[in-house]
Design a protein around this nucleic acid. Sequence first.
RNA 1: GCCUGGGUGGCGGAAUUGGUAGACGCGCCGGACUCAAAAUCCGGUGUUAGCGAUAACGUGCGGGUUCGAGUCCCGCCCCAGGUACCA
Length: 862
Amino acid sequence: MSNYKPSEIETRWQKYWLEKKTFKTPENHDKPKYYILDMFPYPSGSGLHVGHPEGYTATDILARYKRMKGYNVLHPIGWDAFGLPAEQYAVKTGTHPRITTEKNIIRFREQLQMLGFSYDWDREVNTTDPDYYKWTQWIFLKLFEKGLAYEDEAPVNWCPELGTVLANEEVIDGKSEVGGYPVVRRPMRQWVLKITAYADRLLEDLDDLEWPESTKEMQRNWIGKSIGAEIDFQVHEHDEKICVFTTRPDTIFGATYMVLAPEHHLVDVITTPDQKKDVEDYKEKAEQKSDLERQEITKEKSGVFTGAYAINPANGKEIPIWIADYVLAHYGTGAIMAVPGQDERDWEFAESFDLPIIRTVQPPEDFEGKAYTLDGPAINSDFLNGLYITDAKLRIIEWLEKNGVGKKSVNYKLRDWLFSRQRYWGEPFPIIHVDGKPKAVPEEELPVILPEVDHFQPTKTGEPPLARATEWVETTDPETGKKALRETNTMPQWAGSCWYYLRYISPDYDGGPVDKGEENYWMPVDLYVGGSEHSVLHLLYARFWHKVLYDCGVVSTKEPFQKLVHQGMILGEVEYTAYEKDGKMISAEEAAGLDDVTRVRLSDSDVEKKGDRFVMKGTQITVDSKAHKMSKSRGNVINPDDVVVRYGADSLRLYEMFMGPLEQVKPWSTKGVEGVNRFLNRAWRLFFGDGDEDVLNISDTEADAGQLKVLHEAIKKVTEDIENMRFNTGISALMIFVNEANQWEALPRSVAEPFVILLSPFAPHIAEEMWNRLGHKETLAYEEWPAYNEEYLKSDTVEYPVQVNGKVRANIEVPAERAKDKDFVLGLAKQQKNIEKYLDGSTIVKEIFVPGRIVNLVVKPG
RNA sequence: GCCUGGGUGGCGGAAUUGGUAGACGCGCCGGACUCAAAAUCCGGUGUUAGCGAUAACGUGCGGGUUCGAGUCCCGCCCCAGGUACCA
């Protein structure tokens, strides 16, 4: 065999790595460690898509690189295997989710191994494995002990027709995704985790993380900390007080009315008899609107007067109390003091209902808007007049506290985490109910095994599927011997993924979720790579659990993931779409607003660029050119298996890294895969020629200066690019090496071997094969990474572009030893024919000389 | 609306952070090999003008700073993702 045959060499090396356990994590702690983690996949029925290998290749390159740099590397993978699709499939077909899940895991594992990732397969974790979820339950008990898990009534999406609770994503326009049946909000007993208790720490500790700024910002917004004050407003002729939260207590003199959320508990108490009907009607309407609907209507504000008045504590004035759905029941206190002068929403409402508006901050003279929300001196505000916002706030809070009508207060957008699901395929809660009260299952009894049930739907009464396992549900309290009922809710999919990175560290440890000694060595995760769709929820929940475990002494770091990178989505191939209406082709702009147009898919040979648009060849008819998300319905899904069969795993890996920066969204191009495949073929021929016989085109001659320069340039570039995760330019450096080396008479071994090492993280199979054919008997996975020598990078001459008035007019070559000699270089520059031309009849007013970079002569006519 | 990215050849993308814009790959054009094709190899390829040396223009748009701007500053436009009555 002499031609490059990926299918042969790839299977051979994959087998070698598995059998020899090449990538087994070292057990000693004698070297620096590097923990590199992928977001583990949900093993879906459709297998791997091309998005998975993108992030996984990036981490694999780093893992292989770090091993060769002398690190102990922990690079594991596992399965986030609880989840809805397997359960839905079970409901439909009766197949136990365990069966489906096992089958899918086998497929995923094969696919990942087929791509040559250097995972330690002895550390696989599976969230559905009782040995794993034992510790998920254990962590839940910690939360429960600390009072961070509590029961509450919370509304769920209940679909009476399907007899089941639906996740938000299963509800479309108030109807079930499956079948289109109506969905209603119905309160149910739920488990809730008190993540809000950690809000401040989750916010503050973001600062020290090497995460994308956008992700940190999203988490900050999600937590939504705002500092302000709570103020009590006495209801006129009632004993009740209404407490409001405001970030602008300084505007209190401009509070001309109050608004309660329709759900506010005081609404019924304070509403006057003659307003009762209006208020009831409004409440009913608001109730019927879904959350989405209430959010959509941003323009027209609606509301009703309750008939009651409150006393503004700052000036003793009576102000009307309204209810309106622009005030949200679950934020702040569910009630606001409305200050239309300084708040756009309040201004709109005041205008609609003819309520008074008082400005309490002086807007600038040229201000033409309505509400003025920026800084300025206070007006119409008694003792605050003249103070700017910051000072006015301090002053009024002091006053409120002194008079006992308010205090400084902090509020968060973050809400407690609804932690239970009415599902089968999830972790059972380690909770029993004795005399109607929840009680922890003793630690020794963990895991609470997911029971078998006859069907996977909820019961007729709407209880979760686990309620069907009556023998399991009806138990006794081991402590008192009393009758007890097991919790029948299950945990959400997030639970297993909240701590899996810890289990990899000591997957078989049975003294706790993680072995303390190992944890000390391996944590934190040095690099975590995964999709940006997990920017908020998964990453926030995992951070929350980690902090709880930190408080319990289970982990030693405050944060789990030191550095985070999101890979960008891979789109389908670029598509050109033309539009046809009534048998005539029309331009894309024209077609935009019309519905009865036919889309025509064009190939790239049918279109050409005209200006900044594409048109149909030879016409003025513009077409759309766009890469779309891959989707089954569009038929543009690229299957990694097919790519591997045609071009090999090394080509797939290389292409996905070569497409562009890792973080960026980028369109797929099969031609591009062919390009990198050609590169691997060229590299192969460089070593082994293209004849039929087995030859090795390697010489044992010494490398000359030119060859060393080419090699060390590659070493430098590839090393720096891997360190900075700029894989696309690193690969380009490898290509440059091969292009250069192809022109050499002979390839010295001393140059060939370091090149193979450089190539190996990207294309490990071909590199192992080359290494082997170079006569090495062992894997190259632990060879030393080559270092570059600055000496070899120097060249004999330095090239200077010569500019006149900032425009390049000539290039000169200067011997390296005189390159920093300003007079010499300038002298030479001025002698150039094309430069003389520009100097002639002009005077040089300035000479710029940047050593090793550029010469610029600034001239003036005359 | 707000937040975060981003706009560079026919396409994906480079550019040492203020110093020759377009590395590398794709595509395209020409040539070699072949009866032919594929594969492979060699050469060319930002646009315009010119046989050419060369020149003008060129990094979303309009200004500015600088000897010099894709890179810095001011004002816009467009695209992608996220978020949304959060008081």
